[in-house]
Nucleic acid binder design. Structure first.
Lengths: 160, 160
DNA sequence: TCCCGATAGATGCAAATGCATCTACATTGG
DNA sequence: CCAATGTAGATGCATTTGCATCTATCGGGA
């Protein structure tokens, strides 16, 4: 039963990750070089986007950091820049004297929407011709499952 | 037929991309904070890895740049650093006086293997509990299809 | 053949990033 | 209640990154 094409689980996992990673790189490359991100870098937009999705409107710096591939210090300074540009506002966390709460300003919300519209258009131009709706749903399901599995395991204290 | 749950193609595409992107961030976060990348940054390892896969052993800087999410100038300097560390060797391209060919040195090949072993182990520890083999294969198929669709469309001259 | 635009890669310089560390507040165990 | 340990975020500083630009070569058309 051990045919030549039998791949080990380890190898399969590595190849799957590589394919996922390269696809992300290829899509991201196209997206970030488009005109949508002239005013704001992708990471900066991503922070505005995450804030725009937050039900309460306020988010801890801390929580933001989970979403973004940035070190804590880089995020701290990125937010500092956004604040200087008047796109987000800070407020000391009421229940935790160490914490900082963030929310979009009106200007920030507007810029997020403006970039978001264009961004979504760019995304669909790449995804729609590539995968059928059923395939997109399956891809979404698989990546969501992968993510939720990661969230559950011991998250270590290290969050570079 | 227009039920409330009917999503527009544009929305589906955007949500699919977001799920893919977040999964990539979550996995990458875990991988890069592990001990495998103490000696080399992920992007640096990725260059060594790509070179190790190259059949001829030699690769144009140019081609390398397609694989990596880095600007041309950043890649140029990254390679410069790798060369200083003795991990890769440069050679002027024989057929094109502008070009540069790259290959791994023995030391580079060894370091790539060393890190690669650990890296592959880390990947499988994340992927295996998250997705069944069949799901991994499907994820690989979908991401490969997405990537190949992107490669075909007009690649613009812009390659930041 | 000789321009002229395009392409490969390098470089100056400003901006962004990460690591290590620091401060302030929180929480827990005695 | 207090000391000890942990966590949130900011900051100094060196490294890395990207944009704009530069040089050198290639390739196509008059």
């Amino acid at each position: 039963m051990a045919g030549k094409s039998a791949e080990s689980p380890v190898r399969l996992a590595a190849e799957t990750w590589e394919s996922l990673f390269r696809a992300q790189v290829a899509v991201m490359r196209k997206l970030q070089s488009g005109p949508a991100f002239r005013k704001l870098a992708v990471n900066e937009y991503d922070v505005l986007f995450t804030l725009s999705r937050c039900p309460s409107g306020w988010l801890r710096l801390n929580e933001l950091n989970d979403n973004v591939l940035l070190s804590q210090s880089s995020l701290s300074r990125l937010v500092e820049r956004l604040e200087k540009r008047g796109l987000v506002a800070r407020m000391p966390a009421p229940e935790d004297g160490r914490g900082v709460l963030l929310k979009l300003t009106d200007e920030g919300r507007e810029l997020q929407k403006e970039i978001g519209r264009e961004h979504v258009r760019d995304i669909s131009e790449l995804m729609v011709p590539a995968l059928t709706p059923a395939e997109q749903k399956e891809l979404m399901r698989l990546t969501a499952k992968l993510r939720s599995s990661l969230d559950q395991r011991q998250p270590r204290q290290d969050s570079r």
